[in-house]
Structure formats: C-alpha cells, structure tokens
C-alpha cells in the first residue's frame, strides 16, 4: 500500500503527537511515582494514628495479609499486641463505595473508625466524616450486645437528617469487620506472634554472627 504525500503528512503528524504525548506522560509518571506513593502512605499513616490504640511500632511496616485483607497491627515497645486496623469497603453507599478504616482492640472491641474515601453528598451523607459524635458512638462496641442497624431499621445507630443509606452502609460494613475478626482472630494473633518470633530470631542470628566474627 502506498500513501500519497498528504496521507504521509497526516500519519506522520499523528504519530509524532502521540509519541511526544507518550514521552511526556512517561516522564511525569517517573517524576510523580515516588511523591504519590509517599502521599498515600502519609494519608494512611494519619488515619492509622487515629484508629489504632497507642502503639510504638510502624503499623504499615508490620502489616500482613489474612484472607487477602491487609492487617495493620499496633504493638507496644515489647511487641505485645495493642490492637489491629484494616480497611473495609461498604459497596452500598449512596454514591459508590465507602472505604472505612476500622481499629480494634485485641479483645474485639472497636477502638475507633475513620472513613478514608467516599463520594457521599456533602452536607448530607458526609456526616460519616464530619460528625464526630456519630463516629464516637462506635467506640467500645463489640459484635454481640449491639444492634448493628440504624435507628430507622430498629438498631442502635443514628441516621442523619436526609441521609439514611450512607450510615446504614457504614454500620453494615463495620459489623462485617467485627464478624471477620471473630472468625479470624486466632489466625491474626498467630500471624503477629510469628512476626515477633521472626524478628527475635533475626536479632538472635545477628548476635550469633557477631560472635563468630
């Protein structure tokens, strides 16, 4: 197939524009990759500090997976477990999914929760972010003993004026997190213990190596 001159010019123009655009995007991607990762880590760090009980470790560095869920453990200076946090997704928000970071104490009571991402209506559904009393109401609750529904459905949690779907979705997702902990508790605790043992072991090895030197 042979192009005439005009067709060659058209093809050339598009190819040059596309290659230049791709080049610029590639460079931008390289330049922003690190800062984006840092910003995301920073955001998660802030959220974790708010939902986890006081801890001495870097919860992100110590995170491990249980059943494809990334668990962030809180430990004191001696490695004793102080709590856990992980993110749950409420798929049934008013507009799209709501991501919630749930922080638990080892006994299975909620320490605090925090919404990390949502598209709910400002002024209505976004009470799940702004209404601190409502968020406070979750603290200390365990799976049994609370009615995990909004008041409109006969439960223990307030809905907001003009917004029922959003809090309903959050309450359901948090209940799911507690149920997950109840069923996976032993697995999670074992994983932390293993992690601590691994750390001790590597410290031990280091000492041995030093002796050999």
């Amino acid at each position: 197939m042979i192009f005439d001159r005009d067709q060659m010019r058209m093809v050339l123009a598009i190819v040059v524009v596309a290659v230049l655009a791709a080049g610029i995007l590639g460079v931008t991607n390289i330049l922003t990759r690190e800062p984006i990762a840092r910003a995301q880590k920073e955001a998660l760090h802030k959220a974790l500090a708010q939902v986890l009980p006081q801890h001495a470790n870097d919860a992100q560095a110590d995170s491990f997976n249980v059943d494809a869920v990334a668990i962030y453990p809180a430990k004191d200076g001696l490695g004793n477990v102080r709590g856990f946090a992980w993110e749950v997704v409420a798929p049934d928000g008013y507009s799209g999914s709501i991501r919630i970071l749930v922080g638990l104490e080892p006994e299975g009571a909620i320490h605090a929760i925090r919404v990390t991402d949502h598209r709910e209506t400002p002024g209505l559904g976004d009470g799940i972010v702004k209404n601190s009393d409502w968020l406070q109401n979750f603290s200390g609750r365990v799976l049994e003993g609370s009615n995990w529904k909004v008041k409109k459905d006969g439960g223990d949690f307030d809905q907001f004026t003009g917004a029922t779907i959003t809090p309903r979705a959050v309450v359901k997702a948090v209940k799911g997190a507690l149920a997950f902990y109840n069923s996976q508790r032993q697995v999670i605790l074992n994983a932390v213990e293993q992690q601590n043992r691994g750390k001790h072991a590597s410290e031990h090895e280091m000492k041995l190596e030093m002796k050999i030197d």
Binding site: V17, L25, T28, P35, I36, A39, E42, A43
Partner: peptide, 24 residues
Amino acid sequence: PAYITIIAAFVTVVGMAMNAWMHE
C-alpha cells in the same frame, strides 16, 4: 485527534501532579 491527544496528555499530567503534591 491531534488536539485531543495533546489535551489528554496535559490532563493526565495535571492529575498525576495533583495526586502527588495535593493529595487531599
């Protein structure tokens, strides 16, 4: 198509830069 490619490139660059330096 050439203009749209140019615009799309700039939009993606702005989006990435915002994600990196104005995360919230």
